[in-house]
Amino acid sequence: MVALETPRMNPIIEVRHLHKQFGTQVVFEDLNLDVYEGEVLGIVGQSGGGKSVLLRCLNGLERYSAGKISFFGQDTAQMSGKDLRHVEARSGLLFQDGALFSALTVLQNIQVPMREHISLPKNIMDELAYLKLALVGLPANAAHKYPSELSGGMRKRAGLARALALDPKIVFLDEPTAGLDPIGANEFDMLIRDLQRTLGLTVFMVTHDLDSIFAICDRVAVLADRRIVRNGTPTELTKDPGHPWIKSYFCGERGRKAQGTAQGS
């Protein structure tokens, strides 16, 4: 690492010239994106524009046709199986509805990555799982409940606890506030912000919730026309949209309102 660089400028993920297509439908064309250490990066874009596909590509759940994705400076395509497992252990993923394993209790769900990637004594694993449960703001009596017995917001929290089980460097969040009521969504935003600050996390967040963008995102990357057309702070993008979609997104009625709320608070 170069000493002159500030820690903020270390890209954890570099995406270069990513190309992806389903059949004849091109999803990404020459897509470039950097995710820097310690930032909250929001990905916005039209629905059906490939935000979730990008997240899945980054997590190795979807193959891409051409291009390069590097994690921690290493090309994922060149990595050995062991290195890939290491990267997996260093990154957490929260699916839209939590994607908890329905046959396991919340506590067992949180322990799945611990069992899979490292071997821990049972008592310490329990301690750790209860700690993560407390960190995401779930009551202890949720530990032995099954996902079907939880509300949507609690499922997301439990999913986040599972994503944080191994103290990842980076967490990927897919629409973290979708389907939550405004109070719940705001609480979840603050939770992400808190954990990101205290744990030094990098957060990669696919969202279309303008409130969370203005509340917690350091930087926003806009996915439109099959590539990242612009990125910058939410305020920069509002001042100088430079793309018709960004203009209608940030400078529409809802965008202005969300910005007003964020500045007011």
Binding site: E127, L131, A134, P139, A140, A142, H144, R197, T198, L199
Partner: peptide, 17 residues
């Protein structure tokens, strides 16, 4: 910050059945 975070969140436990 980490120590504070953890002391702020007491680990309650729910007994298994």
């Amino acid at each position: 910050i980490l120590f504070d975070l953890i002391s702020r969140h007491p680990r309650e436990k729910a007994g298994n059945e």
